[in-house]
Computed example of a mutant assay.
Amino acid sequence: MDKITTGKIKKFFKGKGFAGALCLSVVAIGISTYLTYDSTLKTIADEEPQKPDSTVSAEQVDNTQSGIPKDETSKSEADSSAAPANNFVRSTAKRVMPIENEVIWEYSNGELVKSETLGVWKTHDGMDIAASVGTDVKAACTGKVKEIKDDPLWGICVVIDHGDGYETHYYGLDKSLEVKEGSNVESGQKIGVTGTIECESKLAPHLHFAVKQNGKWISPKEYING
């Protein structure tokens, strides 16, 4: 019986029966592999976190749910941090004209104007108030004398710091001043008298009065009336 069985087995492997069985085995293995691969892909897809819809704007996303901390800085705070801070508090002291008289040359607000004396085009950063030599000049507002200088073109110059971002400049004074650097002055207090201004000598005698706000020239009239 062993001989018969062995012979049949050898005949089976040599015949078409074996080839068919082998093909069926290969197909079965392929189907099994595909089903295992497909199952694995589905499992990975289920475990992968869902991407947010690209149509959802950044404002619609709730960061408390995504685990990302919210930026508490508001737009206004961001804008203010980009600009230089102005910590000055405007003085409540009265503002007055240093001389109550006609203005013979206005502030040019950055525009070039021709100087009759120098014959050149330049900005006129203050206003010229007509005043005969020896006219009293008053402080435009309460403050402290920051600087006194003798300029070859502008004559004696006094700068008063008002402590609120503003400075007033008085050019063309006589040397006989009634203040010195560091002196505290009140609105309307006399600081000296008018003298001469070499660089504007072709104009009638006057005081050159100018104002700076945070280091930039501004209109003296706006400062007085502000």
Rank of each mutant, 00 (worst) to 15 (best):
A210S: 15
G30C: 15
N63C: 09
E198T: 07
N101T: 13
L203N: 14
T73G: 05
D46R: 02
E200S: 11
G67R: 03
I44P: 02
K94S: 08
E47Y: 13
Q65A: 13
D71G: 09
D151K: 07
R95E: 11
T55G: 04
K212L: 09
K14G: 15
I224Y: 08
E77D: 12
G119A: 05
T135I: 03
K16D: 12
N63P: 11
S187T: 12
V185L: 02
E222Y: 10
V103T: 05
G182S: 00
L41K: 11
D151W: 02
V137I: 07
G215K: 03
A83F: 06
A131L: 02
L41S: 05
S57Q: 03
S201Q: 13
Y171L: 15
Y171V: 12
H124E: 00
G215W: 02
K51G: 13
N86K: 06
W154T: 04
D46M: 12
V26Y: 02
H169F: 11
H124W: 07
G215Y: 13
L35F: 13
F88H: 11
W121C: 03
G134S: 01
E181S: 07
P152N: 04
E186T: 09
L24E: 03
K212M: 09
N184K: 09
T194V: 11
V185M: 07
K138T: 00
D62V: 08
E100C: 00
Y170S: 01
P98I: 08
M127R: 04
T40I: 15
G188I: 10
T36G: 04
K70M: 00
K10A: 09
Y166V: 01
L112G: 03
R90Y: 06
N86A: 03
V61G: 00
S132M: 11
S66E: 02
A78K: 15
E102I: 15
G143C: 02
G67C: 11
P220Y: 05
T64D: 14
S66P: 06
